[in-house]
Design a binder for these strands. Structure first.
Lengths: 359, 359
DNA sequence: TTGACTTCCCGAAACGTTTCGGAATAGCTT
DNA sequence: AAGCTATTCCGAAACGTTTCGGGAAGTCAA
């Protein structure tokens, strides 16, 4: 009872009022003016639900947060949501967020979203190389965009070039003189885990070095701590640890402390994410900044284009991450000449070597 | 065209099909069985939009994330969303998330939510003592629940008793022998900032101590770093720093490092949030765990009760936070006898004192 | 047989919008 | 004067659901 209210008080039909406000051509200029004024006067807002029913849409985009062990508070998702929020609002779309742990529960939630017609499109993050969510969405013919590539491809996606970043990071460590560079990775079925490992491995091969020791687990501080321990206790002790995420790297830094090793000096550590804590870790962490906001913006572009009818198959973008050098990496300990200058600057600030409990 | 599809293929009326699936009493058991079977067969799902239009609801709950400087990735919101997501889904409600920076933009977004009838209820976090969002929601008669109390009160709210936690923390430091306890707080117009400061101040008064030095800013690592610097450079140098949040505390720990002071030994630091990083800070941070999931659950209870028609005015709950002692606090440096035992364990792990760039 | 009461079902309206297919009026051409 | 076009408006249907107010049988008692 709202379009009709304007219609009645102006002696017009509902149709005309609708078309006047909708900006259609077949309504007299004078009439449109009167309608607009009356609409403003009574504070008319089109009921979005009626509009959706009529239009057969739901004007909403869905996203599912991963929960579960070690997944608390991944800042990535917050930044993603914060980045696209205003633009979605501008486009008249709602962002519907729910949460599930990876696996069956998660897929069930996607089904719910789709089958209950709650969303017109979805944003998929934490993409796996072979991802049943993506197979499902494709089968359901629902527009979507992923953060991260899949093996199959052929869908809209934005990805950060983790392979390049980690190749670059490895080259940096090689240039620093490191010869045994370990890797602390995320599970390889995640696309991001896969490509980062691939970058590390390929750079080692290019440099003619044997592959260093590697361990993989869900990216949490605790796992980083544990895996670094394992690597440092192994037969070939790495002088550098490349970590798939900052959270892993933070844990690794502590493992160094436990072993009485100085980060950036005895062992170099490089992370990825450039999270706020990386700057305030025990030793400020050299990391890669992925420009989440930029990626989020492109994902939204792709989503809106698909909702406007375009085919998403050809949409994909690979973006770079930029190195943020801090204190956690440096020359390999066995190269004495090159190390001198840095060693001095280290003396100034003295060194830290303290074992820590895992608490 | 869906209820009607079942109706047609069964030779029933739409009404009867609807009432059969709705579980009403006036449909024969045999008929209900047939309807349910056919519904299952064709995979019928009620169109939520039609249902909403008819019911005059929107079956959605809104929440606005704060963005802006130093607000990136507050894990609080993720944990909140993750905690309530499944239960909302179960209740058939969507969670609509958007984002805005505090202030005019934020209020405008609330208005948009309400006036465009996008939500039936809202969740308000980052509550200020005098909060125009709350005044607005009350005026608009939209159910809501806040995380944090307001001065006015009279609405559904869940809060963690920050005053009690910070009184307790202060008493702990006093018992450790500290006599000058500084405070690094959040702005006092935030409820959480206000009560935490009040707890600190009242405990000092109760202990017969003069109020220590205090500084306030948006809770970020950077601000914690800056404010701790100021406090340590001030005329009365505190031997302990109580920080309103872990992020402030992490920054403060670094300021200690800059000044060549050993956390937990020369200067004690206590934070609040028990965030994942607190366990992996330069020195593992003594903190308070607020049980966000528990609070989120209660908030949802209140929201659902209000959507079921109850008045939210009397709903409010004050919950406790629990201390998680780690390594960043301990006896005051001037009390020698009591310190001995801890000093030894410190020697083992050696000390860290290194200036850092803010990078 | 009649009336009342149960049991089971249904038509129509309503939620608020958009759109299809006209229809009425006015102006212009021939 | 008749036909044609352009302009401006409108009625009705449709989106899919729920609910109001019956109504048609069947059952039971008087």
């Amino acid at each position: 009872m709202s379009l009709s209210r304007i219609a009645i008080s102006l002696g017009l039909s509902v149709t005309t009022v609708s078309r006047a406000l909708g900006g259609h051509g077949d309504v007299a200029e004078e009439t449109r003016r009167r309608v607009e004024e009356e609409a403003r006067r009574i504070g008319y807002r089109a009921n979005p639900i009626a509009r959706r029913l009529r239009g057969g849409r739901s004007d909403a985009v869905g996203i599912v947060l991963p929960t579960g062990p070690g997944q608390f508070g991944e800042p990535f998702f917050l930044r993603l949501i914060a980045a696209i929020g205003p633009r979605l609002a501008e486009a008249g779309l709602d962002l519907i967020v729910s949460s599930a742990r990876s696996g069956a529960e998660e897929l069930a939630l996607y089904r719910q979203f789709v089958e209950n017609r709650r969303v017109d499109a979805m944003i998929v993050a934490r993409t796996r190389l072979d991802d049943d969510r993506i197979a499902y969405l494709r089968h359901a013919r629902l527009p979507f965009v992923t953060h991260g590539r899949t093996r199959a491809g052929g869908h809209a996606s934005v990805d950060i070039d983790g392979a390049r970043a980690f190749r670059e990071a490895t080259q940096r460590l090689v240039a620093f003189g490191h010869r045994c560079i370990g890797f602390i990775g995320a599970p390889l079925d995640y696309g991001f885990g896969f490509f980062r490992e691939a970058g590390w491995r390929s750079a080692l091969a290019e440099a003619g070095l044997p592959p260093g020791p590697a361990r993989f687990a869900e990216p949490s501080e605790e796992n980083g701590h544990r895996l670094a321990h394992e690597l440092l206790a192994g037969p070939e002790r790495p002088t550098a640890l490349l970590c798939a995420t900052d959270r892993l790297a933070i844990g690794a830094l502590h493992a160094l402390g436990d072993a009485g090793l100085r980060p950036g000096y005895d062992v170099s550590v490089i992370g990825y994410d450039n999270s706020p804590v990386s700057n305030y870790a025990a030793t400020p962490l050299t990391s890669y900044d992925p420009d989440i906001e930029g990626a989020a913006g492109r994902m939204l572009d792709m989503l809106l284009a698909q909702l406007a009818g375009q085919d998403g198959a050809g949409m994909n973008e690979l973006r770079g991450a930029t190195l943020v050098p801090r204190r956690s990496d440096g020359p390999a300990p066995d190269l004495n000449g090159q190390m001198k200058s840095r060693a001095i600057s280290r003396e100034e600030r003295s060194d830290d070597e303290r074992p820590h409990d895992t608490a």
